[in-house]
């Protein structure tokens, strides 16, 4: 996934704060950068746009810290796009940076979807609008299934993963169990099944002060 990560000096790995976050990035620059990403990213591809912009074009993060921010965004509640904007904005300019990056990320799509929503509410009985939206809905199903498969296909060759996927789908879609209970039951079980074991990851175990 990560082509040729730069070798991490031992000192840097011990002290993450040692990496140079660019200081004094102007707030307007943060805003405009995220506004641009928010305006051109479509359909779940936002991570690619973020990387192209933040790592390659602006150089605000290196690959390693980009992946670390992405890891936080994915493990925690919320959308990758907005979580990433908040984390990166915070690292660049603190709370003000986080707010301005989030605002930039959500402004284009948010104002457009609100405008469409107002138009939709006013045209709920228009047969042309409804026919078009039936087509859009069907297309959305195709897109969601493609994105799910793109993300999931790597996991389909491991029985444990398939079992967790199947249990989740069964509970949510067929037994209609509330998401909170699914997260509280399947989540800990899944993490436990992938728990660190003796013998794997000696290197990782070496630095784990917090592991209980």
């Amino acid at each position: 996934m990560n082509p040729s990560p730069p070798p991490v000096p031992a000192a840097a790995a011990e002290a993450p704060a040692a990496y140079a976050v660019p200081r004094g990035v102007p707030l307007w620059d943060i805003f405009v950068t995220f506004l641009f990403i928010g305006a051109i990213s479509f359909g779940g591809g936002v991570v690619a746009y973020l990387r192209a912009s933040l790592v390659l074009k602006k150089g605000w993060l290196d690959e390693e810290h980009f992946l670390s921010a992405l890891e936080i965004s994915q493990a925690l509640p919320g959308l990758n796009a907005t979580n990433m904007s908040i984390i990166v904005g915070d690292r660049l300019r603190g709370v003000a940076g986080a707010i301005i990056a989030f605002a930039g990320m959500t402004l284009p799509g948010g104002s457009m979807v609100l405008a469409l929503g107002v138009a939709y509410a006013a045209n709920a009985h228009n047969p042309y609008v409804n026919a078009a939206l039936v087509g859009v809905g069907a297309a959305a199903v195709g897109m969601l299934s493609a994105v799910t498969l793109q993300i999931g296909h790597k996991q389909l060759n491991q029985v444990l993963n398939v079992a967790i996927i199947a249990a989740t789908v069964l509970m949510v879609s067929f037994l209609h169990i509330s998401l909170i209970w699914v997260l509280l039951t399947v989540g800990p079980v899944a993490v436990f099944l992938f728990r660190p074991r003796k013998g794997d990851g000696e290197a990782a175990a070496g630095k784990s002060g917090e592991a209980s």
Partner: peptide, 8 residues
């Protein structure tokens, strides 16, 4: 895999 299941 939990997330993939939820997406499905």
């Amino acid at each position: 895999p939990l997330v993939v299941g939820l997406m499905a």
